[in-house]
Each structure stands twice: as C-alpha cells, then as structure tokens.
C-alpha cells in the first residue's frame, strides 16, 4: 500500500515497487518554495534513501528559474537517483527539454510521453543499480 504526501503543487507517493511518483497538480506556478517543499516531502517519504522518481508533469504549466535550478541542483540529487518525466503536451515538452538541455540534472533524467515506458526505464535502472551494489554517487 502506498504512502502519499500532498504538497501545494504535487501529490507524492511511494509505491510498493519502490518508485516515488510525483503528480504535478494544476497550480498557477511552480516556485522555489514549492521545489524545496517537494524535495523535502520526498526525502521524508523515503526516509533519507536516494530513490527513482517518476514525475508526472502532464498537467504542468509554469515553473520558474529558481525552481528549475533547485530541482536539478545538489539538494535534489541527495534524494533522487534518476527521474523519468512524463509529458503530455507541447508545454511539458518545452519544460522538459529546457531542464534537460539548460539545467543539466546531475542524475539520469529522461522524458517520456507514455507511462509504461517511463516505469520500465526506471525499473531497468533499479535493476542495474542492484547488480552494481549501492548507487550512491
């Protein structure tokens, strides 16, 4: 059974498959305070472990520069091992590509338009990390 935390901008859940799923709510704008709140909520949910994260940004609209920087910075890298970002529109593709090309996340980060492919990619990464032992870098 999954545990869920709701923040101003996201619904964050840790499922039985050990993947954290963040669903972006339709809010006005994702700001730095929201990014900090979401990263802290994720950290609290997983108890300090670094996790594989599925970010469902299909309803995302706006995210400011500071928030983007925080999500791709060292604080988030302490919590996240890899992120699969689900996008469903041109807006999502623009935001996702921008994060990927401009902010350069320090962990594996990939865009998906289909949820199963995103889950599959994360599961493959998890399996690879199990084979290689703890993935802490």
């Amino acid at each position: 059974m999954s545990q869920v935390i709701e923040t101003r901008t996201e619904l964050i859940s840790l499922d039985d498959d050990e993947i954290v799923r963040c669903k972006v709510k339709q809010t006005e704008e994702h700001r730095l305070a929201d990014a900090i709140e979401n990263v802290r909520a994720t950290a609290a949910l997983v108890g300090g472990r670094r996790v594989f994260l599925l970010l469902d940004a299909r309803t995302a609209t706006k995210i400011d520069r500071e928030a983007r920087e925080y999500y791709t910075g060292p604080e988030n890298a302490k919590v996240v091992r890899a992120t699969a970002m689900l996008i469903g529109s041109s807006v999502g593709r623009i935001i996702g590509n921008f994060i990927l090309r401009v902010n350069h996340p320090p962990f594996p980060f990939r865009l998906f338009s289909d949820e199963e492919s995103a889950n599959s990619w994360l599961r493959d990464l998890m399996a690879a990390s199990d084979d290689d032992g703890p993935w802490e870098s």
Binding site: T61, K62, D64, R65, R68, S89, S90, V91, R93, I94, I95, F98, V102
Partner: peptide, 26 residues
C-alpha cells in the same frame, strides 16, 4: 502571458520564450 484555456502550442511558445528570457536575464 500564459492564458488558461489557450491552445497548447501557443502556451508552449510563451513558456519557452519566458524561460529563455529568464535564463538570459540571469
């Protein structure tokens, strides 16, 4: 401005330009 209810492509254009402006300004 990004308008609610506006078509996706136009809003994507606005968001993309805004993000470019933010980065360039920074």
């Amino acid at each position: 401005t990004v308008y609610e209810g506006q078509d996706d492509a136009t809003n994507a254009l606005a968001i993309g330009l805004n993000m470019m402006c933010e980065e360039l300004e920074h």
